[in-house]
Design a protein around this nucleic acid. Sequence first.
DNA 1: CAGGATCGTCACAGGCTCCTCACGCTACGT
DNA 2: ACGTAGCGTGAGGAGCCTGTGACGATCCTG
Lengths: 226, 226
Amino acid sequence: MSPRVLVVDDEPQIVRALKVVLREAGFEAVPAEDGASALDLAAVRPPEAAIIDLVLPDIDGIELTRRLREWSEMPILVLSAVGEEGQKVRALEAGADDYVTKPFGTRELVARLQAALRRAGRSEQEPSIVLDRLEIDLAARVVRRDGEPVHLTPIEFDLLRALVRNRGRLMTHRKLLVEVWGPEYVEDVQPLRTHIARLRGKIEPQEQSAPRFIVTDPGVGYRFAG
Amino acid sequence: MSPRVLVVDDEPQIVRALKVVLREAGFEAVPAEDGASALDLAAVRPPEAAIIDLVLPDIDGIELTRRLREWSEMPILVLSAVGEEGQKVRALEAGADDYVTKPFGTRELVARLQAALRRAGRSEQEPSIVLDRLEIDLAARVVRRDGEPVHLTPIEFDLLRALVRNRGRLMTHRKLLVEVWGPEYVEDVQPLRTHIARLRGKIEPQEQSAPRFIVTDPGVGYRFAG
DNA sequence: CAGGATCGTCACAGGCTCCTCACGCTACGT
DNA sequence: ACGTAGCGTGAGGAGCCTGTGACGATCCTG
């Protein structure tokens, strides 16, 4: 079952274009041509996300955003034509998750939609993990060892989070570098090593011995033992 | 024990549908088919919340809302058919927490119900916190140090509240800026720093030392030590 | 066994974030 | 008009985070 995306726009060609784009990206577009029918559709069978044009025949996109936000936390993207950028702040205040100016690339739109969905799914509830005497609360960004809070630097925590989110699975150097530093740092393996070392020094139970949590996979990457 | 929700409606099919939906969402539905029996049921064993149809055999939903409000602060959702939107204001004035127009999606209804319960749980009792010699009463918007009231400016108090509501957890610069200043100020970290400094000056026990309450997480944000 | 590749560790220097403080602006009440 | 409260801004300095490069250890391979 592909995720449903409510598309609210009164220009048929835009709706048609979005339908195609979304289908290719694995979404099902649910079209609505004005605010009232959008609210009805969303009420009867709430979609996973919504793309809303700023200008609609009845109420404007911002008002529609506000109405949906009254009861739903679904990701909402607002579309606008050029020259309407001034509305951006108001749209975000009303609860929109992102604001896209026409003309937009279809790939950009899909990317933004997926990013919003990822954020929504993630904020739900990050897992809190306890093993041995190590305690990791990703949401609170807190790590404890033997009950005592351990201070981690930003990179150290992001690294640990990337590993823990995929615990049991192998994380290649490449994946870790992209996730923590960004795509342009794919080559810089040495800093990664250094930070892994520092992280181990803070969370591994005993010095001078085989790591319990962060295991090295020589030539490939690291994995968090879950 | 799942929370009990009073469902007042004289149409058996609606009641049956709501029963199923609520059970799936972790609630127990307590059905009543008219206002009189609803009042009886609520009096005998008060539910956590109520969903009331606008049209009932004896008294109307608004009157029932008013009667319940005389002694209860439970969240109340009023249902109405299309064309009855004019009643919305009256329902809210009578003390309803939300107003849902049929046809409604089951997930929307549940979302609104949960939102209302969240609001109720929050306003009911904003945590009043005492640690060391600091006392914070969020509901009363009062802060004391050693029993003496401390004056906080609006921004300072909102900042403290955002931190205290999430105490123990890290609040990123971004989150604090959105919560206190609004989404359009996401970038303005320096003012945040300044106000944190002023706030610390007013509530931290000793000058010239490591903060006891508002702890800095370098590169990420702040957290309130709870 | 020899060579090479990968990895862990360490000290260090640069840079960035943060705190503090003084100042100017605005809104508001006297 | 004047004073005050609340707020944002910028400079300056301290402290911490981070990347770097070198070195030794380990493992694999030929």
